[in-house]
Simulated scan of single mutants.
Amino acid sequence: MIDTMSRLPVFSFLWPGMLWLLAFVLMLAAGYVWLDARRRRPTAHYPTLKSVGLATKGGASWRRHVSPALTLLGLTALIFAIARPQAVLMLPSRIETVILVIDLSGSMRAQDVKPSRIRAAQQAAKVLLDTQPAGVSVGVVAMAGTAGVAQAPSRRKDDVATAIDRLQPQGGTALGNGLLIALTTLLPQAGSDAERLMNDDTTPTKRPEAFDSSDTVTPGSYVSGAIVLFSDGESNAGPGVLQAAQLAAAHGVRIYTVGVGTTEGVVLSVDGWSARVRLDEKVLKQVADATAAEYFRLEDAAKLKKVYRALNARLAFDKREQVEITAFFAALGALLATCAGLLSLWWFGRVL
């Protein structure tokens, strides 16, 4: 679906019929010009009056026209206010919900990032949590062989931090499931599509038919929330990661990805088996790109602040919104009328 905000007029009125009142302003302006011309006639008929200053007494100079002009402009602004003007403006969006998805797979035990991948991810998640405004709800999704909501979206940061601290590494990696659970937590209306994808037998590279409908929106257009994924990118269970990302993109939700680990990897020994586990940046970049978001890399816990600054800055999206600006014109009209009265009182000792 094409973004409807792009079709809105840049400037419009809710009550355009009230603009006919501007004719009254034109009549007043014409009347003022006529009266001013009439005042000038004695000078034309009796030139000697000008020499003695009678015709110019009272400030018959340019100052004489300032107050009436400001009054007419103020009246014009008030009429615009009566017509209830509205404009399409770029405003800072209000992020209402952020869902943190934390990878708890066995590979996250690796210590190529100190103290370990999982601990570094937890620390990064808590840094991001601490710096969210008070009005933002933060939820936590734990993802390993299966995925589940460890903490429902909440504004109580202590509860969310406790949920993050309780997370422990598990077996398996269902990265796609984690993203789908996060998406349905953020947007419950996406639940039917997510359930279909979880039960779909299509390959990860095939895009489900539901995503091809005209009901999909522009990727990244959902400005009230976002998903942040902390993972090393490895997945060996559940639906395809890119399918989950495509579904999120179809609902306009951005998935910011934070890669935890090193591309060189490290040999990890668990329960009698050993394997080299590496950071799969390619998958994480594809997820971010598909949802109009961005990928970040976290190699060391000491770099948490740098990652946060870059990530949090991008969570503060801008959005186009049609806003009524009646108050602006009302205030402008009152200000111009006040200035007109004060200047006239200062220069001529009277209000207009």
Rank of each mutant, 00 (worst) to 15 (best):
S6T: 12
L8D: 00
V10K: 06
F11C: 05
F13P: 01
L14P: 01
M18F: 13
L19V: 03
L19I: 01
L19F: 07
L22K: 06
V25L: 04
L35Y: 15
L35S: 10
D36G: 12
A44W: 12
K50S: 13
G53M: 09
G53S: 09
L54P: 05
L54K: 08
L54F: 13
A55L: 05
G58E: 08
G59W: 14
A60K: 11
W62L: 13
R64I: 06
V66M: 11
A69D: 04
A69I: 15
L75H: 05
T76M: 12
T76E: 03
A77P: 03
I82M: 14
P85T: 03
A87P: 00
M90Q: 15
S93C: 02
R94S: 14
I99Y: 01
L100A: 07
V101S: 02
V101T: 08
V101G: 00
S105P: 03
G106N: 09
S107W: 04
M108T: 11
A110S: 13
S116P: 00
R119N: 06
A120P: 10
A121W: 03
L128Q: 02
D130C: 03
G135Q: 11
S137R: 15
A142K: 11
A142Y: 13
G145N: 05
A147H: 04
V149A: 03
A150W: 02
A150E: 01
R156E: 11
D158C: 02
D158G: 07
V160T: 12
A163C: 08
I164D: 00
P169F: 10
L175P: 06
L175M: 13
G178T: 06
L179Q: 07
L183S: 04
S192L: 09
D193M: 05
D200R: 02
D201H: 15
D201N: 15
P204D: 02
P208M: 00
E209I: 11
S213F: 04
S214I: 14
P219N: 02
G220Q: 06
S221T: 12
A226N: 09
I227V: 12
F230N: 01
D232M: 02
N236E: 05
A237W: 04
P239R: 07
L242P: 05
L242V: 11
A248W: 06
G252I: 00
V253I: 10
G259Q: 00
V260A: 04
G261N: 03
G261K: 06
T262P: 10
T263W: 09
V270A: 12
S274Y: 04
V277P: 00
K282A: 11
L284D: 01
V287Y: 08
V287C: 06
D289E: 12
A290D: 06
A292P: 04
E294P: 05
E294C: 04
F296G: 02
L298F: 10
E299Y: 08
D300H: 11
N312W: 01
F317W: 01
F317C: 00
D318G: 08
F328H: 13
A330T: 14
A330G: 12
G333L: 03
A334D: 01
L335R: 13
L336I: 07
L336C: 11
A337R: 01
W346R: 11
F348M: 03
G349Q: 02
L352H: 12
L352Y: 14
L352F: 15
